[in-house]
Design a protein around this nucleic acid. Sequence first.
DNA 1: GCCTACCGATTGACGTGTCAATGATGCTAA
DNA 2: TTAGCATCATTGACACGTCAATCGGTAGGC
Lengths: 163, 163
Amino acid sequence: MTETTPSRRGGRQLPAAEELRIWRDFIEATAALSSRLESRLQSDSALSTGDYAVLLALSEAPERAMRSSALAAHIGWERSRLSHHLGRMERRGLIRRQECPTVPRGAEVLLTAAGAEAFGNATFPHLRAIRELFVDALTPEQIVAAGEIAAALRARLDAPDKG
Amino acid sequence: MTETTPSRRGGRQLPAAEELRIWRDFIEATAALSSRLESRLQSDSALSTGDYAVLLALSEAPERAMRSSALAAHIGWERSRLSHHLGRMERRGLIRRQECPTVPRGAEVLLTAAGAEAFGNATFPHLRAIRELFVDALTPEQIVAAGEIAAALRARLDAPDKG
DNA sequence: GCCTACCGATTGACGTGTCAATGATGCTAA
DNA sequence: TTAGCATCATTGACACGTCAATCGGTAGGC
């Protein structure tokens, strides 16, 4: 309640030292978590998290197929990113692309048998890793707090004037 | 207290649906936050967060210079990553490399005047962005919780048997 | 002395991500 | 009709990151 009140009060422009320390710990820990999950998935299943996201979406889609742009929207990727990624996945035989019968110029992305099998083999170890590294690392209260923090960050990121 | 008790109880191997939803929200929100910060820094200052980390470390080092391996350890990067990054930064004139006088085969990384200026110009807008997108997006209680979550995740990641 | 093993640093190959430019196609309005 | 114009998807150039191989040099064991 003194002049050391955190930056939320008053007209301070920059984060206080403690806030900055937490920021760094937070962003580094989450980056390290992602990176560890990525490498676990890679060594368990020879898939990247990008591969996994694509395979998951296709597995859940009717006919195990999706239009390229719908797939991009579904997993929240830019189209050019998806296009590059699908090219790599197609080379590995995980998916196939063909012209979409209904939409002119539309590309349909299909899950191949090899892709479905790779996804099936990846799921269990991937979920287990999430459990070990995230769920079991936190108390139930911390998990709830993590959900609230994610929602608050997302709300700010989506706010139109705070880009 | 029924069979819907969360996975922490009993021998469940996989995260429950709610935990999985929070996991996805959390990892996606933090990734989006990093990505937004990255693009803000890029457009404000034409630097990447990697550039910023290197310039920050050099700015705070005595003589504005550091051994390459010490720099890698300081910012927690693999050496090959740093080597590639320094190559790019050197091409842009932000840093310079020279043989280390004391350590045979050691490389000394020096901050150039242009690098120091770029860092100076980047600092204020970068800290402001951190404040807008992280500090001001959360309540004081959430910031504390974020620090605790980061510590818990880090502890798990560093645990020897939970790699 | 010489072989080996390690150490600091770099390099090459490749997967990944962004941005800007390009095709290819349909819609709309002069 | 056709000149724009938006849309769907791809491509090229480049930055970034990891992994494995390499290179020069020093230290130990024999």
